[in-house]
Measured scan of single mutants.
Amino acid sequence: TTVKVNGTKYKFDTPEEAQKFAKKAADKYNLKVVVDGDDLRVE
């Protein structure tokens, strides 16, 4: 599972880890998590 934040992709072994990271990033930058198929985007 990958998470894309500000054009940078981060790869995670499990969707749970990816979800946690995406949520933290979204909170930090005051953005929202967008599900894109198997991957997540923070925008």
Rank of each mutant, 00 (worst) to 15 (best):
T1K: 08
T1V: 12
T1H: 11
T1G: 04
T2M: 08
T2D: 03
T2Y: 13
T2Q: 06
T2P: 01
T2L: 07
V3Q: 00
V3R: 00
V3W: 00
V3H: 01
K4G: 04
V5C: 05
V5R: 01
V5P: 01
V5S: 02
V5Q: 01
N6S: 05
N6D: 06
N6F: 15
N6G: 12
N6V: 06
N6M: 14
N6H: 13
G7W: 05
G7D: 05
G7R: 06
G7T: 05
G7F: 06
G7V: 03
T8R: 15
T8V: 14
T8D: 05
K9C: 15
K9V: 15
K9Q: 11
Y10T: 02
Y10C: 07
Y10F: 10
Y10H: 04
Y10L: 04
K11S: 11
K11W: 13
K11D: 06
K11Y: 14
K11Q: 11
F12E: 00
F12H: 01
F12R: 00
F12L: 02
D13M: 09
D13N: 13
D13W: 06
D13L: 10
T14I: 04
T14K: 05
T14G: 04
P15Q: 09
E16C: 05
E16F: 07
E16M: 08
E17P: 00
E17H: 05
E17L: 08
E17I: 05
A18G: 02
A18I: 00
A18Q: 01
A18V: 00
A18R: 01
A18S: 02
Q19H: 12
Q19E: 09
Q19N: 07
Q19D: 06
K20A: 14
K20I: 13
F21A: 03
F21S: 00
F21P: 00
F21W: 08
F21M: 02
A22C: 05
A22Y: 03
A22G: 01
A22H: 00
A22T: 01
K23P: 00
K23R: 11
K24Q: 13
K24A: 14
K24D: 14
K24Y: 15
K24F: 14
K24E: 14
A25M: 15
A25W: 15
A25F: 15
A25D: 02
A26K: 04
D27S: 10
D27Y: 10
K28W: 14
Y29W: 12
Y29D: 05
N30M: 07
N30P: 03
N30G: 15
N30V: 03
N30Y: 08
V33T: 02
V33I: 13
V33K: 00
V33H: 01
V33S: 02
V33D: 02
V34N: 05
V34E: 07
V34M: 08
V35L: 11
V35M: 11
V35F: 12
V35R: 10
D36M: 07
D36S: 07
D36I: 08
D36V: 10
G37K: 05
G37W: 03
G37F: 04
G37D: 05
G37C: 05
G37A: 05
G37L: 04
D38A: 11
D39R: 04
D39S: 12
D39Y: 11
D39I: 15
D39G: 13
D39M: 14
L40C: 07
L40K: 02
R41D: 03
R41F: 08
R41E: 05
R41T: 10
R41L: 14
R41K: 12
V42I: 10
V42N: 02
V42A: 04
V42S: 02
V42K: 02
V42F: 06
E43T: 10
E43Y: 09
E43A: 08
E43N: 05
